[in-house]
Write a protein that binds this DNA or RNA. Structure first.
Length: 423
RNA sequence: GGAGAGAUGCCUGAGUGGCCGAAAGGAACAGUUUGCUAAACUGUCGUACUGGCAACGGUACCGAGGGUUCGAAUCCCUCUCUCUCCGCCA
């Protein structure tokens, strides 16, 4: 959520940059500025009346103590009308604040200057390309056929026990999953991230803190009885660890990592491109999260991007890095890099990571601040990235590393799997 | 699921109607002292909105929301959460 003061002081820039997102309801911005002005006036009036009431109450107390009951009663009578005014201003103020809040949560984050205007995926910028497409033979298979051929992932079995999009990993398939999780966590730890294990369900306040609620309500599984949400990403619990926290400047940067399963309803996204591991309702992911000083956040974004790329390089995958255009970025992000690996058999790119700087957008919702060495308290910047999401990595490994002898496990992963081939 | 207790500042914890934005201790920070470590002493030490160049003010906040009262951390109601015991159970 943006800060009202920022909007007020940078109206033109806000409108211009939101334009890069194709954000159309620009009148909201002026309504916010207007409402905030009214809010201030209302607040001031209320404060002044409260000050009078407080001082009257003190005087009455004093009069009572000194036994001057008559004067006390007189003053009491005078406070009655003031009381009503206070109540009325209080209600007015609450209504204004509620309205203001309902508007401000509708405004997405302001894209960074580097983010190009655009409406969708076709406007994203490719900023880096690594490697070459794997050259596969005549009989190359897509990963879902390889999964069936080697009996390592069973989609039908998942359908039976749960439903579509909940695969069962079997034998070496299951071991490959576990190997990747350990590989990713070990690398994150080596980069200075602290490994955390967090709940896989979160409450409403957490959902709001990172921006999933109220916006993407329908994308999360919700356990109605207890009003808890299954996490769509570890970002939610891991970032919310710092909700309502004021850190010391020396404690920055905070670097945490966690492996969790992720649950997404993916409502309305069925079709040709959801086959196999391409899009699931439950998948595994290792996430990295940082809380940093505002002046460092873009440098850290680049570091996180490089880190994610180093993982892809170690796995020997052909990938590209996109800087998302305004229209394709998430609601809460100021700048996002997507990493996509090449799926040789499907002949398409698959998103495996998304690294974002949220600047103060989440921090403002979370009330995540730090106290500067100068003594001033201000909002921190939050960032996160997938490092990495498993299913499409698995898809890419299966397809790109298929040989006549079976699936060759990437060199760097062998010490984690304990085997060199899936056959 | 049954019974009970509780929610106060970074922490412990006092506070049952006005002198309480809140005692005291601890932690932290700054300084003095000091051969070093430690200790001692002094000071600072919540957040938000708002007025002011500033100094310094105003208002709100003692889990949340209502109510009583001239006045509420303190009394009343509702809700939420936490803890303890019993039961069940990985």
């Amino acid at each position: 959520m943006l800060q009202v003061n920022y909007i007020r002081e940078n109206r033109e820039k806000v409108l211009e940059r939101l334009g890069a997102r194709n954000f159309k309801q620009t009148e909201i911005i002026d309504q916010i500025i207007q409402l905030d002005e009214e809010r201030k006036q209302s607040q001031t009036s209320l404060d002044n009346l409260s000050a009078i009431a407080n001082s009257s109450a003190k005087q009455i107390g004093e009069l009572m103590r000194t036994g001057n009951k008559e004067a006390a009663d007189k003053l009491k009578a005078e406070t009655t009308s003031n009381k009503e005014a206070i109540k009325s201003y209080g209600e007015q103020l609450a209504a204004l604040e509620e309205k203001l809040f309902s508007l401000i949560v509708q405004v997405p984050n302001i894209p960074n200057e580097l983010v190009k205007p655009g409406v969708g995926a076709e406007d994203n910028e490719e900023v880096y390309l690594h490697g070459e497409p794997a050259q596969l033979g005549e009989h190359a298979l897509p990963h879902w056929e390889l999964a069936a051929k080697y009996d390592i992932i069973d989609f039908e079995l998942g359908v039976k026990i749960t439903g579509a999009g909940f695969p069962v990993y079997k034998g070496k398939g299951a071991k490959l999953q576990r190997a990747l999780i350990n590989f990713f966590l070990d690398h994150a730890t080596a980069q200075g991230y602290r490994e955390m294990q967090v709940p896989h369900m979160v409450n409403e306040a957490s959902g709001f803190g990172t921006g999933q609620l109220p916006d993407k309500e329908g994308q999360m599984y919700h356990a109605g009885v207890d009003n808890l949400y299954l996490i769509p990403t570890a970002e939610v619990p891991v970032t919310n660890l710092y909700r309502d926290v004021i850190l010391k400047e020396d404690e920055l940067p905070v670097k945490n990592t966690a492996y969790t399963p992720c649950f997404r309803r993916e409502a309305g996204s069925y079709g040709a491109h959801v086959r196999g591991l391409n899009r699931l309702h439950q998948f595994d992911k290792v996430e990295v999260v940082q809380i940093v000083h505002p002046e460092k956040s873009y440098q850290v974004l680049e570091e996180m991007s490089s880190y994610v790329q180093s993982l892809l390089q170690e796995l020997g995958l052909h990938y590209r890095v996109l800087r998302l255009c305004g229209g394709d970025m998430g609601f809460t992000s100021a700048m996002t890099y997507d990493m996509e690996v090449w799926s040789a058999a499907q002949q398409r790119w698959l998103e495996v990571s998304s690294v974002s700087n949220f600047e103060t957008y989440q921090a403002n919702r979370l009330k995540l601040r730090f106290k500067g060495n100068t003594g001033k308290t201000q909002l921190a910047h939050t960032l996160n990235g997938s490092a990495l999401a498993l299913p499409r990595i698995v898809a890419s490994i299966l397809e790109n590393y298929q040989t006549d002898k079976g699936i060759k496990i990437p060199e760097a992963l062998v010490k984690y799997t304990g085997f060199e081939y899936i056959d």
